[in-house]
Computed example of a mutant assay.
Amino acid sequence: MTPELTLTTGPGPDGAVVLTASGEIDMSNAETFAGALTRAVADAAGARLVVDLTAVEYLDSAGLAALFAQADHIELRTGPLLAPLLEISGLSDLTTVHQL
């Protein structure tokens, strides 16, 4: 069974807005993820927006496309599982990636 995607938005300890995703991001839920990203960018209103992907177990091209669409407005937080994907895709060249 595929882990359900959960998304939460809240303030980070440093004043940034943090959108936290957990589970899997694939073509079945990428539209939901993209919508959450768009809303978080609007809600951040110029503040830093950090997308925390440390609890994401799988990210396919549909999820990457959602991240690329907002690359100018976000920073990413990831663990060792997704870091190579963000590097190979070129996303790490477009936005700041914090690897934990």
Rank of each mutant, 00 (worst) to 15 (best):
A65Q: 13
A16Y: 08
G23W: 07
D52L: 07
T20S: 09
V18W: 07
D14L: 06
L53H: 14
E57S: 15
V51W: 12
L76R: 08
L67V: 01
G35I: 02
G12H: 14
G12W: 10
L53A: 11
A40Y: 14
I74N: 04
A71Q: 07
A34M: 01
L49S: 05
D26V: 13
L53K: 13
I74L: 14
P13G: 05
F33E: 01
G12A: 13
L49M: 05
F68P: 03
G12M: 15
L49T: 01
Y58V: 09
A36P: 04
P11G: 15
L19F: 14
E57R: 14
S61V: 10
I25T: 09
M27Y: 13
G46N: 04
R77T: 01
T38S: 12
A36S: 09
A16C: 08
L49V: 02
A47F: 00
A62G: 08
G15V: 09
L67Q: 05
E75W: 06
M27K: 01
A55R: 15
F68N: 07
L76D: 02
A71F: 02
S22K: 09
D14S: 15
A16H: 11
A30P: 00
G46M: 09
A16D: 11
Y58P: 03
A21L: 04
G63L: 07
D60C: 03
V17K: 04
R48N: 11
V50C: 06
G46W: 07
A47P: 02
F68Q: 08
T54N: 15
L53Q: 07
F33H: 00
D52N: 13
A30H: 00
S22G: 13
T20N: 01
S28W: 10
A71H: 12
F68A: 04
E24C: 13
A34Y: 00
L64C: 04
A42P: 03
Q70E: 11
V18D: 06
A34G: 05
P11H: 14
A16G: 14
R48V: 13
T38Y: 02
V56P: 10
E75D: 08
V50E: 05
A62H: 04
V17N: 00
Y58I: 05
P11D: 15
A71P: 02
V51S: 10
A45L: 02
R48A: 14
G15E: 14
F68T: 04
R77G: 07
D72R: 04
E31K: 02
G63W: 06
A16P: 03
G63E: 06
V41C: 03
A47N: 07
A30L: 00
D72Q: 10
F33C: 01
A42S: 12
A55E: 15
L53I: 11
M27G: 10
T54Q: 15
H73W: 05
A62S: 12
F33Q: 02
A47W: 03
V17E: 12
T20G: 03
A44R: 08
D60H: 01
I74E: 08
D43K: 12
G46I: 12
I25K: 02
E31L: 00
G63S: 04
E24N: 14
P13E: 15
G35N: 03
L67R: 08
Q70V: 13
L64N: 12
A42N: 13
D26R: 10
V51N: 08
L37A: 10
I25Q: 04
G23F: 05
S28H: 09
D72M: 00
T32M: 00
